[in-house]
């Protein structure tokens, strides 16, 4: 019987290679084009609008390029929007406050999330997946509604105040809603799963015999935790912290629903400038500044992901 594979004639080579290249090309080009158009390009537009003046009309911003009277093409860059950000304490305060809230919330997430992730790695194997699912499940329900739930709990005649009043611990309702406390609570609550999952991923990959080796070498459990477990879970700590910190800096829903008039966060400022004041140039300037602030952590996150991928 003739070999079926040998009876197949070799195709003309260049045509074949062309086809391969075409196939491979489409695979990479389609997502590249989509992301370039709908994700990359907009940032150029943001940069452009942030350098223009607000005008009445649609779109409500001036052109950067215009024809001057002598026929020369004129480029008018307007840095006033950025000057405003620097001079008006509202924006600067909002930036600093966002960073502070995000950093604190990240730390609290880490403090709650680490023991949770560690706890899940220590239970019976059959319980791990269900416990992990329970961490993820709230994430699948609406973010907005989960934040909304806290309004009912925190407000003046809400659950906590009713409980405390009923127990006679306080005489009049505590102001819990519309405070910075509520904002911290909301962010920690909303982003906790993003901390637990990467932590669990690194902790569960850790070889348990490392702790036994540490113990064998005379290391007490607590010091083994600090010297072995924590350093080895560092990748998870970094990933989790960035996944919480970066989106939290620009968070809008939580400060809007749970925060008070003073709990200024930059995401909310951007929203207000855009929807209420309709000042697109200032809104985009805020966005540019926010991006500049996040470039370092985002790149850090990227490098980290690449490294994980190689590992």
């Amino acid at each position: 019987m003739p070999s079926p594979s040998s009876s197949k004639p070799a195709k003309p080579l260049h045509a074949l290679r062309e086809r391969l290249r075409l196939g491979r090309g489409t695979v990479a080009v389609v997502p590249l084009l989509w992301l370039g158009l709908f994700f990359g390009l907009p940032f150029l537009i943001i940069a452009r609008i942030s350098l223009s003046e607000v005008v009445i009309g649609l779109p409500p911003y001036s052109d950067l390029l215009s024809w001057a009277e002598d026929g020369m093409l004129q480029l008018r860059l307007n840095f006033a929007n950025f000057m405003l950000l620097w001079q008006d304490s509202l924006y600067l305060d909002a930036f600093i406050n966002s960073l502070r809230v995000a950093a604190t919330a990240t730390l609290i997430c880490l403090l709650i999330g680490y023991p949770m992730a560690l706890g899940i790695t220590r239970v019976r194997e059959s319980l791990r997946v269900p416990l992990l699912m329970l961490v993820i499940l709230p994430f699948w329900t609406s973010f907005l509604i989960r934040i909304y739930a806290w309004i009912g709990i925190l407000k003046g005649n809400g659950l906590i105040n009713n409980l405390l009043l009923g127990l006679g611990l306080i005489d009049e309702p505590l102001a819990l809603l519309h405070t910075d406390f509520a904002v911290y609570l909301g962010i920690v609550y909303a982003y906790l799963p993003f901390m637990v999952l990467p932590l669990y991923a690194t902790l569960s990959r850790m070889d348990h015999s490392l702790l036994e080796a540490a113990a064998d070498l005379g290391c007490r459990p607590l010091s083994a935790f600090w010297r072995v477990t924590v350093p080895l879970s560092l990748p998870g700590i970094v990933a989790g912290s960035l996944l919480v910190f970066v989106p939290a800096v620009g968070e809008f829903v939580v400060p809007d629903l749970l925060g008070g008039p003073d709990s200024l966060m930059i995401g909310k400022v951007l929203w207000t400038e855009f929807f209420n004041n309709r000042d697109w140039p200032v809104a985009t300037a805020v966005a540019v500044a926010l991006l500049a602030l996040l470039v370092v952590p985002v790149l850090l996150f990227e490098r980290f992901r690449e490294k994980e991928q190689d590992a």
Binding site: S3, S5, S6, K8, A10, K11, L13, L16, R17, L20
Partner: peptide, 17 residues
Amino acid sequence: IGGEDVTAVPPYSRPVN
């Protein structure tokens, strides 16, 4: 392979497994 230059022949067209 078998006297035929297969340098640029892709794996799926080679009489080889």
